[in-house]
């Protein structure tokens, strides 16, 4: 070959430490990458000004849960209605509880101190571990501060589930059972319908309702009125009956956030209590009926399918 590398064959001349062309090439490659970097830095800043919505002020959703009013619906001898309403309304797949009510003893090892109940929706963390680790950005923040999941992008690696310190994310291990009209509807990221096999789902603060001036199903369905839906931007909150100033509600009741020390900066505040404001018949004999939660359309769909199979 005529253009044999000059490095070899020329006797007596010590070859270059790195072939010159190779050095230039690899610097050029790196420089191209940096050039790209420079362009990107500029374009990113440009996007910053036209990407963020300016002008009309955006809601910044927040939830306040008053634990003085929550008794886990044990005093009503019902399964937690907040979870039940959420299950019905979102066609939550079986065994998933996007809003889950936990029962915990108030003082460790003192059974007479009783239990209190902790309804835990997705905390919509501002420093969300799930958003940080997602490899494809399937879970993301909306400008209103809510964390959503694009189930058409999710690859089902479940890293977000491992990262969530509140156990608030759920996976569709098989084909989720939902009514046929839900399955046939076009995919909507705001309502997470229809549920897609092999993807992750969670509480989404019912933003399509809240944005229209309504309330999430848990807020509406709680028979004790323990939930407030609020907006940090307008500094306002409501429990479905009355409207209050959010900052005052949080300050006057010394509201706290769960596992705040982890630095997740959640958007769900709690007002400490043990259900003392929930009217109850008895205090110790109620039972927490979480095991009676239903996913009723599962039964409906199964019965319908069985009927179809026997008739077919």
């Amino acid at each position: 070959m005529a253009n044999v590398s000059r490095d070899n064959g020329e006797a007596g001349r010590a070859p270059a430490a790195i072939p010159r062309r190779a050095f230039l090439r690899h610097t050029a490659a790196a420089a191209t990458a940096l050039g790209l970097a420079g362009t990107l830095a500029r374009t990113e800043r440009a996007a910053a000004t036209d990407g963020t919505p300016t002008g009309p002020r955006l809601r910044q959703w927040v939830m306040v849960i008053d634990l003085r009013r929550c008794d886990g619906c044990a005093g009503l001898a019902l399964p937690p209605q907040c979870t039940q309403f959420c299950n019905w309304s979102r066609f939550v797949p079986e065994q998933q509880q996007w809003l889950e009510v936990y029962e915990k003893e108030i003082v460790e090892d003192l059974p007479d101190s009783g239990v209190n109940y902790l309804p835990a929706p997705c905390m919509q963390c501002q420093n969300a571990p799930c958003v940080n680790v997602c490899p494809v950005g399937a879970t993301f923040h909306t400008p209103e501060g809510v964390v959503l999941i694009d189930q058409e992008r999710c690859i089902g690696c479940r890293f977000c589930m491992a990262a969530c310190p509140y156990d608030r994310r759920f996976f569709n291990w098989g084909e989720p059972v939902q009514p046929p009209q839900v399955k046939a509807a076009p995919y909507n990221v705001q309502t997470q319908t229809p549920a897609i096999k092999g993807t992750v789902m969670k509480c989404d603060f019912c933003t399509e309702r809240a944005a229209a001036g309504g309330l999430p199903y848990c807020v509406e369905g709680c028979p004790r009125g323990a939930f407030y839906m609020g907006d940090l931007e307008e500094d306002i909150a409501t429990d479905g009956q009355k409207v209050v100033q959010l900052s005052r509600l949080l300050r006057d009741n010394e509201a706290f956030r769960y596992k705040e020390e982890l630095g997740t900066r959640p958007r769900v505040y709690y007002i400490n209590g043990h259900g003392e404001e929930a009217p109850r018949a008895t205090s110790h004999e109620e039972t927490f009926r979480k095991a009676d939660l239903e996913w009723p359309w599962v039964e409906i769909v199964r019965v319908a399918e069985a009927r179809r199979e026997t008739s077919a």
Binding site: R57, G137, P143, L148
Partner: peptide, 27 residues
Amino acid sequence: YTHDNLEGHRPGRGYRRTPYAHVGKRA
């Protein structure tokens, strides 16, 4: 370009937008 979640809530191109909820406006 494809993410919104780097910092400052800057929506990227591939990010699935949901309708914005504005103060004082109701659908």
